[in-house]
Design a binder for these strands. Structure first.
Lengths: 329, 329
DNA sequence: CTCCCGGTTTAAAGCGCTTTAGACGCGCGC
DNA sequence: GCGCGCGTCTAAAGCGCTTTAAACCGGGAG
């Protein structure tokens, strides 16, 4: 197997300079129609493909957005996919790098910057605020789906308090009075959702009960078991997120507690799971797609436009009513 | 914000040549202890970080493995994570690139090769065999978790037929006689599992029934609904994979059909979902970790060793008995 | 005192592409 | 016939690093 063809080879084949080949292949105006044709033909004949590392190095700009991804979390990966799509449309490429036990978010960001990413998008990061700020000083950073004050970095998120508030309104509107919130535990997103829950109930003159939970199925399942043993069980449960809600649903179903007849369940995120026909979970949309687009836009504004002041984009979440909520019996 | 420091800046700061700095920072033997110390100090002072694109370009080898990932599939992302871990241990880095509607597997592979990945690992690819072979001619390729004859590329997989066979043996051993298989539809993995199911039943002198399914929850759910309307329902169901099994489980639970009391359910993959305490799905382990390690090893053998003949590694899957299987009533 | 040697260090040539300044030809008006 | 401007092309200088061949240097051997 011989070495892959270089620009020089194409130039020789076409009988022009490497400069011309470069211009033609990148579709830069200048070269004549005849030159274009000859270059294209030569490139085709040789099966030429530009070496990305070389062109990144030579280019002034890389037009690369870095995105660390926690592969084991469906919500984050879903958003990563949306980011990728949005970036491609904006003429940017995305460099993904997995967060693993061996290399945490901070290291991954370093690696991405070493690859010359021009900006970094952090999807629901768990990093301490100080670290975010430090990072923001090194490169354009957009924090997505996390409630922090912009501080040298941009923030795109949905108003979680309002989101959970909508859930509460919906349930109260259906006639529920005993509503429990299974919270997100220590996860970064937990506090707002908990606060939103309590505030909304207060608004309705009710008081709420919060059960310690967590961002994954197991936490929801554990909470459900607690509720099953309850002398006066709630008629509705609002989970910290969809995964937590799934845990609840599952344990309820197994125990013969019907949803939504016996108890209503609401999730948060509106991930793929919630949308599955047989789950059909009432939940709050985080608008992953919209957040992704806004985040990319924010990064692009900093890079192509030349915004320099941090912005905070707060989207309004909306409740997606599906089949897991109904009036109490 | 001034331009990031270059090797040259560190060299000036330390009072040595760029060559020395490069050697010291990559921990190449040669430079004296004194030089090392000065360089390290200077680099620290400037906060120097090597530019990855530049070093990749200059280096003979990139030690980069390319992995296209379908972010919306948990099994594949889980494996991608394992690959990342295995690669890091072997001194290789992983370039991840998302498969999206806008850029399919083939395009992503091209992009990865343009980044100078030295090999490509395909996780349960859906590409036609001819495309795999064509790809294998361009670069070292390891196909993981798919049954194809190695043809210019390596293959690492588990023996799916045997895996499903084990499931059947387990169920028959428990006393089941009416066993149904909900297959994977047209997905690449479906055929072997279906064949393994039928062969195993025949071995036991039983005949099997196969219901059309698919690789996702919805397919399992649909199949479950079919089974619920069955005059003589099976006592056990073997799903094409875990996601499909989850669909089944969910519909059964909602219909008041208890698992495993009324019907046993077996999955395939042993992904994170199956291991969740409240799901506790009996399933067949695909050994994602082991497949990932073997795949990385295969790539490394081609790159560092100089194996050139394709290999096929077929691991033996093993049944993980959990809580969704029990003797029939 | 010279020569040679091994351990260190460095100048310089790439890696494969982009980009810019300037060369080149050509038709035009004067 | 000359100079000019324009559209097109190219030589050459990078991009920031690695790598190699050669320079350097002090000291032990002859």
């Amino acid at each position: 197997m011989q070495r892959r063809p270089r620009l020089e080879d194409v130039a020789a084949e076409a009988g022009v300079s490497t400069a011309s080949v470069s211009l033609v292949l990148r579709d830069v105006p200048g070269p004549s129609a005849q030159t274009r044709e000859r270059v294209l033909a030569a490139a085709g004949r040789l099966g030429y493909r530009a070496d990305r590392t070389a062109s990144l190095l030579a280019r002034r700009r890389t037009r690369l957005l870095g995105v660390p991804v926690l592969l084991r979390d469906a919500f984050r990966t879903e958003m990563a996919e949306e980011v990728q799509v949005a970036a491609e449309m904006g003429g940017y490429a995305v460099a993904l790098s997995a967060i693993t036990p061996a290399s945490d978010e901070a290291r991954v960001v370093d690696a991405l910057l070493d690859m010359r990413c021009e900006a970094v998008l952090l999807l629901a990061p768990e990093l301490p605020e100080a670290d975010l700020a430090a990072l923001g000083a090194r490169a354009p950073v957009v924090v997505v789906a996390r409630h922090v004050a912009p501080d040298g970095f941009d923030v795109v998120r949905v108003a979680d308090e309002a989101g959970v508030g909508e859930s509460v309104d919906h349930l109260v509107g259906l006639g529920h009075r005993r509503i429990v919130h299974v919270d997100g535990g220590g996860a970064a997103m937990a506090a707002d959702r908990r606060a939103g829950f309590l505030a909304a109930l207060r608004r309705h003159g009710l008081d709420g009960r919060v059960l310690p939970g967590g961002p994954v199925e197991a936490a929801g399942a554990a909470a459900a078991r607690t509720l099953l043993g309850d002398p006066e069980p709630p008629t509705a449960v609002i989970a910290a997120n969809d995964r937590c809600a799934l845990g609840l649903l599952d344990v309820f179903l197994r125990a013969g507690v019907r949803v939504p007849e016996d108890v209503s369940v609401v999730g948060y995120d509106d991930g793929e799971l919630a949308r599955l026909a047989h789950i059909d979970l009432t939940t709050v949309s985080q608008e992953a797609g919209e957040q992704a687009r806004r985040a990319v836009a924010a990064a692009v504004e900093r890079l192509d436009g030349n915004r320099t002041d941090p912005v905070e984009v707060v989207l309004t979440p909306h409740l997606v009513v599906r089949g897991t909520t109904a009036p109490p019996r």
